[in-house]
């Protein structure tokens, strides 16, 4: 499926690892993500989701094929994407030597934003995520949920157009995960971001994505469905069944 005005494009992308490139993680993958789209990338553990994520983020280069983000190569034009792609990782990855507000301001520091404005912006996002009063706490003093909120605030603070999320709520308990997911979804929609959301949970994918791509191993598209805004529960159940069939096969 090709979205209108793709901002992320993977064209026949292959990524292989190991001696003699013996292990193929991604196999000739074609994938377009449209501007403003919320793509949920779903697949079993080890199907190459994180490899795709790293290639879009420009942290690793494909073995063959072309990855473009906004028309440019995110790996080779590394510096050109400063402030344009933000990532929320599976674990919070907060720098332990920085307070919450300093962690949120990290991306802004890379953009040479003056300290005062950086601090104000970081405080704004901490406030949005309900962390006012904890801005001067070091990560070890925060709970798992609070730490993940800080990492979400850090991703939003740079006002990047593209958000990449690698199972950001999977390490949290169900209640915290659900609350954060709802807050996250609201912020993405409010701020008109394009987001690629990696998950291995069908429920999470159905809740978050307006498009679902299911991957088989090695990563190629096994199922690609769009979820209409007014998608009924029956439709969602039908899609869930199709996803389960694909994953089971």
């Amino acid at each position: 499926m090709t979205a209108a005005q793709p901002i992320i494009r993977l064209d026949q992308v292959t990524k292989a690892f190991g001696v003699g490139r013996s292990f193929t993680a991604v196999d000739r993958l074609d994938l377009d993500v449209g501007t403003g789209q919320m793509l949920a990338l779903l697949g079993k553990t080890g199907c190459g989701k994180s490899t795709i994520f790293n290639m879009i983020a420009g942290l690793t280069e494909p073995t063959s094929g072309i990855v473009t983000v906004d028309g440019r190569n995110p790996f080779r034009d590394f510096d050109a994407f400063r402030g344009k792609i933000a990532i929320v990782f599976q674990n919070d990855r907060l720098l332990p030597w920085r307070t919450a507000v300093q962690n949120v301001g990290l991306g802004l520091e890379m953009l040479d934003i003056p300290p005062k404005l950086r601090n104000e912006t970081a405080m704004h996002w901490l406030g949005k995520l309900g962390l006012l009063g904890h801005e001067n706490d070091y990560p070890h003093a925060l709970s798992g949920g609070m730490r993940q909120r800080v990492s979400i605030a850090r991703a939003f603070a740079t006002d990047a157009n593209i958000l990449l999320c690698d199972e950001p709520f999977s390490a949290l308990d169900e209640m915290t995960g659900r609350t954060l997911r709802a807050e996250f979804l609201k912020l993405v929609k409010e701020n008109g971001k394009t987001a690629v959301f990696i998950t291995h949970s069908i429920n999470e994918a159905l809740e978050i994505g307006d498009r679902l791509v299911v991957l088989k191993r090695p990563a190629t598209i096994a199922l690609d469905v769009s979820l209409q805004r007014n998608c009924t529960i029956e439709n969602k159940e039908a899609i869930r069944g199709r996803i389960q069939d694909v994953l089971a096969s």
Partner: peptide, 10 residues
């Protein structure tokens, strides 16, 4: 993990 996170901000 932390290095990768910092690198993601280029």
């Amino acid at each position: 993990d932390l290095t990768e996170m910092v690198m993601s901000f280029r």
